[in-house]
């Protein structure tokens, strides 16, 4: 385990599902038309008038036990410093083994032939900035930081609030948490 474990915490109570995160990601990362690296899920349960709703901004879970990495035959999918799951597009042959292995449907084939997905905006993070989605978010729903630092925003939130991950049964050990 590296000294830093990056994680994102999504406060579903604050999120209004506006999609600013999606659009900011698309322009920051020059994601081609028709594709996205993050997206909004609105889940409404119950029947009129007894309803509950949850809105989530979702993306790659940057799993600590990432099946996309173990299933990648070329080593393109890898875990980089900080525990961030990345794809080296020059090693990627676009075979889609990672896409089949990912329980979160977080990857897509870029028109240039390689598999692409959320990078936690590592190019910004290395300069001390937040990922683009976190930075733009009008509702301050998104938080990013180091889980191995007990004083970080994300650690504090996970200590003080109820949270969940998607698909805990997968055993992937995701690093994308949802405050409920």
């Amino acid at each position: 385990m590296s000294a830093i474990r990056y994680a994102m915490v999504v406060d579903t109570r604050r999120c209004v599902g506006c999609n600013a995160c999606v659009l900011a990601c698309k322009s920051e990362n020059d994601v081609p038309e028709g594709y996205c690296r993050d997206w909004i899920v609105e889940e409404v349960r119950g029947s009129f008038p007894n309803l509950t709703a949850e809105i989530r901004s979702e993306r790659c879970n940057h799993c600590s036990n990432a099946p996309c990495v173990t299933n990648c035959p070329t080593g393109a999918s890898h875990i980089a410093d900080g525990g961030i799951v990345l794809v080296n597009d020059e090693k990627c042959t676009g075979c889609k083994a990672c896409m089949a292995a990912c329980p979160y449907d977080a990857r897509y084939v870029h028109p240039e032939g390689y598999v692409d997905k959320c990078t936690f905006c590592i190019h910004r993070v290395k300069d001390g900035k937040d990922p683009a989605c976190v930075s733009i978010c009008p509702t301050s729903t998104l938080h990013f930081g180091d889980l191995n630092d007990s004083q970080s925003d994300v650690s504090q939130l996970l200590q003080s609030r109820k949270s969940k991950v998607k698909g805990p049964e997968t055993g992937c050990d995701p690093n994308l948490f949802f405050l409920t």
Binding site: H78, I79, A80, L86, N88, H123
Partner: peptide, 23 residues
Amino acid sequence: ALFSGLTTNWWGIDADPIPDPKT
């Protein structure tokens, strides 16, 4: 040098670059 041993793979001596869209 930034990257851990996990990035080493069976064929390459090349390291994985930090993806930067340069926008």
